[in-house]
Computed example of a mutant assay.
Amino acid sequence: MPLGIVLRRRPGVTRWARWSWQAVDVLPGAGPAAWTELRREGETVDFHAATVPLELFRTDTEAYAEALAAGVPSVAVVFEPARGEARPRVLRATVSAYQAQDELDSGELVVDPVPMPPGLLAWVDDFLRAHHAPEPFVKRRRDRHRVDLKEDGRGDPRIAQDSDVYRAPRGGRGAR
């Protein structure tokens, strides 16, 4: 599904950043965009910045279910931050909670959650009903191998001791 991305430009709050950019809305089924101005209030401007494809895969249904189970189901909009006077570049949008987390881990990209419109929420929910089969939890069985028969890490073997204390031997070079 083509998904229009709306970015909001506000005046920056520091002297190092003239503008602050944030994803604020998505437009399901939108046509092509080239930074079309949608709304202006003073210096704050909303742009239809880009239209990106939103793809759903049968193998990722668990991640979609996780995203829908969140307090506010969201679309994660991923974009490169603006450098200087340049505008940010929208890379993708996803409804996968796991992919959004992976994108956040890099620290180089901006990932903004945008609440899902009702129509998009229904589309994702229909996809889940058609393709999601929850996997039952299977507890892993422990190995029967006994690991407690050998004592490793019992301190310095040159020191006779009954407790599990790590001590250095006394005497010799550098002793006080």
Rank of each mutant, 00 (worst) to 15 (best):
S96L: 09
V72Q: 13
S106G: 09
P115F: 00
A122W: 06
A93C: 07
E62F: 07
Q161P: 02
G107L: 06
A65Y: 13
V78I: 15
E135M: 11
R8V: 04
R176K: 11
V52S: 01
A93K: 00
L120I: 10
E55M: 11
A133T: 12
R167W: 08
S20K: 03
R144V: 10
E85D: 15
Y98V: 05
R15D: 00
R173F: 12
E41N: 08
P134Y: 08
D152R: 06
G31E: 10
T36L: 14
P134K: 13
D143M: 06
G4D: 11
V147P: 00
R140P: 02
A69T: 03
R89A: 09
P28N: 06
A23C: 03
G84P: 10
P157G: 03
S106T: 12
E41W: 11
L91H: 00
G4T: 06
T51M: 12
K139F: 14
P136R: 11
Q101N: 08
W35I: 13
E66H: 13
P73M: 03
V110L: 07
Q161D: 08
P81F: 14
R18N: 01
A130Q: 09
R39Q: 15
A93F: 02
A30G: 02
Y98M: 00
L149T: 04
A34F: 14
G42K: 09
D46W: 01
E37H: 08
V6T: 11
W21T: 07
R58Y: 04
E135T: 09
P11E: 13
